[in-house]
Design a protein around this nucleic acid. Structure first.
Lengths: 337, 337
DNA sequence: CTGTTAGCGCTTTCAT
DNA sequence: ATGAAAGCGCTAACAG
């Protein structure tokens, strides 16, 4: 049924070894021999059995993506990342294996599983900052790239934007528009990015001569509903607020919804800025001003680092800081007087 | 470095064979022996090498997803499907491998590649109805599940909703609200679903005693922009139109945008109905009335059929018709008089 | 340049 | 109930 090397060998009259070398482009094969063999291989529709290849070379041509947060998986964030990883993997003749899991066990188990599945490395997304196995993981000599978790080691690195900068860009933008009372709706504290964006909010306020009051900050959980609730709270407690910065587009969409409910015009009465620049930011009304992070590139870069590590023992992984870009749209405008 | 069967064998004092059988739950192993072996395996953090397993059993525990349309990949449609496939795969101890490719070569090549990569079967999404290799593919004795392409064979089937019904449900809903002039913005004709939804539109009109004029139909391409353009055309050519049914939520979002531009109130002046029920349908204003198809379940069911085929030579694949459900929201209302 | 031999880690007859 | 031996399809020394 399936065509193997020895089929090609028999039909071409050469040994399995020679056929293998010919097909793998080794230099120690006669040109004519190679051509004949390639010809036969084509006729027979031969494709190397990757499984057998992998078993013997122990060189995995597979990278994996672990997505820890199931809900996360369903939004565009991860879809774009997968897309980027896929492109990069394809380019290097790697395959992409997907896993979703609620929780990771020990780092050792995780790594064993990966290795035995033939993975050359794994991207892990959705890890909480307080995840106990984090430290073990970096010590593990297994190529790992983390998304939005600041970990570095000889075989581990991470990809992120500068979230402090990103958040302060948002505040700068609003301050430039004359806003002085700026509320902040953050994601849940277990995410590293939340801590960073909070820091960026503080920094942004300060560098614009504004004092961040603690009542200006609401901790949401990245969901739309938490954005809605946050806007309600913030505005009820601080009627002077003229702008809200939400740490995700989805939460910003919730803010928009709540403002409409409260019959507050955006941006005439309240300006709103999100974070991510997912598609939904152009679907809502008004279109969201937001801080863009390019998840497709996250995926590409993560895969790139992983493949480099998997292919070269000595490759030293690089932490990659991707740019965060302010995308001004209709949801932000001059502060009313 | 990695723990193998023979490590466990040596440490436990049994032969590789026995250890293998013990760990695989064969009945011909002494209970105590099994316990001892399991104990050692646990201590050593043993995990079976899937690659080796696969090579010898030729039973692939991997299924693949081919996504043919790159743009498609980036929307929620495919992300939810992946999520569903992943859950189902995990449940059955299968892995999920991802591929994106612009075009497929011959069916034979596709299948060879899959087999040599160790795939037990593949889900293919984004195939055009006129794809030449379709016929070969079903003849191929390789487990295949197609998404939204009506193909059936001994080892092939497809998953879809009844798109004719879905579209007619949309028209029924609008007709019930008193609309008589209903425009239709379709997806591109190369998609099977477009043909079906067109048929459903016609049928829906007729069964409500309405005559579908050809000028009421616009062929878009599933993009938001084409929805916007469609609304513009339809309304310019037929000012009497009071409702528009778009064959995707994204196009419906474009319709909404255009109507706002034209200062037509939704739903007071024009009602809008979409198709899919993606998240964006609740992000737009007003929230979209739409025909829901559950892509997560698409993924689960597709994986299920695939795994059943891959695990059992004799399993006869079932075409699965998932329900389409009208989800009434704010974008549709009574026809104005 | 080409072939012989060995072995990756595992499962599976076939004996015992 | 357990073990010895063979082999899945391939690559990698090592000879010649």
């Amino acid at each position: 049924m399936t065509v193997t090397l020895s089929n090609v060998a028999r039909k071409s009259g050469y040994s399995v070894t020679t056929v293998s070398r010919a097909l793998n482009g080794h230099s120690d094969v006669n040109v004519e021999t190679r051509q004949k063999i390639e010809q036969v291989a084509r006729e027979l529709h031969y494709y190397p059995n990757r499984v057998a290849q992998q078993l013997v070379t122990k060189k995995a041509n597979v990278i994996g993506l672990y997505s820890l947060d199931r809900e996360t998986f369903q939004n565009q964030f991860i879809a774009l990342m997968i897309s980027g990883m896929m492109d990069e993997a394809t380019r290097h003749n790697f395959n992409l294996l997907l896993f979703a899991t609620q929780r990771l066990h020990t780092a050792q188990d995780l790594v064993s599983q990966c290795i035995h599945r033939g993975l050359g490395g794994a991207v892990i997304s959705g890890l909480r900052i307080d995840e106990p196995l984090l430290d073990d993981l970096v010590a593990m000599d297994f190529p790992t790239v983390l998304i939005d978790v600041p970990i570095e080691g000889p075989r581990a690195t991470y990809v992120s934007v500068d979230n402090v900068l990103g958040a302060s860009q948002a505040i700068d933008h609003l301050a430039d528009l004359g806003h002085r009372s700026i509320g902040f709706i953050n994601g849940h504290g277990a995410a590293w990015v939340s801590q960073q964006r909070y820091e960026g909010y503080q920094k942004g306020m300060q560098q614009n001569g504004l004092t961040p009051k603690s009542s200006y900050v609401f901790e949401g959980d990245f969901s739309k509903e938490s954005g809605r609730r946050g806007a309600e709270r913030l505005l009820r407690a601080n009627p002077e607020i003229t702008a809200i910065f939400a740490a995700s587009d989805l939460m910003a969409a919730g803010v928009l919804e709540q403002l409409q409910l409260m019959e507050l015009d955006v941006p005439a009465q309240v300006s709103v800025v999100g974070f991510d620049d997912q598609d939904l930011s152009t679907h809502v009304t008004p279109a969201l001003t937001t801080i863009r992070q390019d998840m497709y590139t996250f995926g590409r870069v993560a895969a790139q680092e992983l493949i480099a590590m998997a292919s070269d023992e000595d490759y030293v992984p690089q932490h990659v800081n991707l740019p965060s870009v302010l995308v001004p749209r209709a949801s932000s405008g001059p502060a009313h007087v």
